[in-house]
Design a protein around this nucleic acid. Structure first.
Lengths: 158, 158
DNA sequence: TTATACCCCAGTTCTACAGTGGGATTTTGG
DNA sequence: CCAAAATCCCACTGTAGAACTGGGGTATAA
């Protein structure tokens, strides 16, 4: 990233980090080409979405270890979705990248004071509210939205 | 914080940082004593909630600058709520501490690709989902929950 | 006037994020 | 068999923010 967009990213990064956005973008790219059955290379995805390729490499590796991607090594290799786009929720992606799921972290550290317990309850509720949004959309949904938007863009040109 | 609870905090810190939790705890403490009309000291709040007092000092200063607290300097001084507990939402507190509200940050940086635009839409939705949870509770609500929990604790003792 | 308590500013350590780089390994294709 | 293409793995850097810690200044009640 250059300096300017870096500053903009800083302003934006409140809950969702750059990592997760990169991962979502890459997976949409892969989902769009999923029917072809041919692997997509890091270089190509990175070029299309303006992501540093060496960085994207690590994110895709994480997604592969998380069981969301398959990889094919060697020449003509690349990455493929491990499942169909409608079987991958956005929560799975974000959780995998952000490292949320390792253990049931949401239940730890018994609160010392009554006040702490009460505050944590609300915090849990807020967390689940945002997670349920990520949960209700699949990669397929993102692709459909993308295609709808592209149609609009084309119509504006005419 | 000691090392052990520090590690536990790390596991917990997913959306809500330690800062916000400290701030919420302190404000509950202030809200409970709000009817008395007398200021509470940093030292006392910090002792009750196991917060390093020099750190809490900075957080309370931020809340004062954000218009949520009033302070009284000098001997017998301390902090008071600037408004009644039912007029302070938890979103105001968290936003003030986390520095969200400075400018309308949620709308920045026009996306370069269609994919980015689509991803940001969902991200916005998730963000608003969690914010609406923080929005719907006031300090008063936290106090009532706290009192209910304390009643329960007392009953267990008998 | 003195003790009390807020006020402001500055420095420290630790962590995660974002990005970069080198080289090993696997596969295709000539 | 060899070379190009691609993933894989490890390690490093720089920056920002979180979570403190400390020193001295200033207002106020008794």
């Amino acid at each position: 990233m250059d300096v300017l967009s870096y500053v903009l990213q800083l302003l934006l990064t409140v809950e969702l980090s750059c990592k997760s956005e990169y991962a979502l973008l890459a997976l949409v790219e892969l989902a769009v080409k999923h029917d072809a059955g041919e692997p997509l290379q890091i270089r190509e995805i990175a070029a299309n979405q303006n992501i540093p390729d060496r960085y994207l490499e690590q994110l895709l590796a994480t997604l592969r270890r998380g069981g969301l991607l398959r990889s094919q090594r060697g020449a003509k290799g690349g990455y493929l979705l491990a499942r169909d786009p409608w079987k991958i929720t956005l929560l799975e992606i974000v959780s995998c990248i952000e490292g949320w799921d390792s253990g049931s972290m949401t239940e730890n550290s018994t609160p010392k004071t009554v006040e702490t317990a009460v505050v944590r309850e609300v915090w849990q509720e807020a967390r689940q509210a945002s997670e349920s949004v990520w949960q209700k959309y699949t990669l397929q949904d993102l692709c459909e939205r993308r295609n709808a938007k592209r149609q609009l863009d084309i119509m504006y040109y005419i």
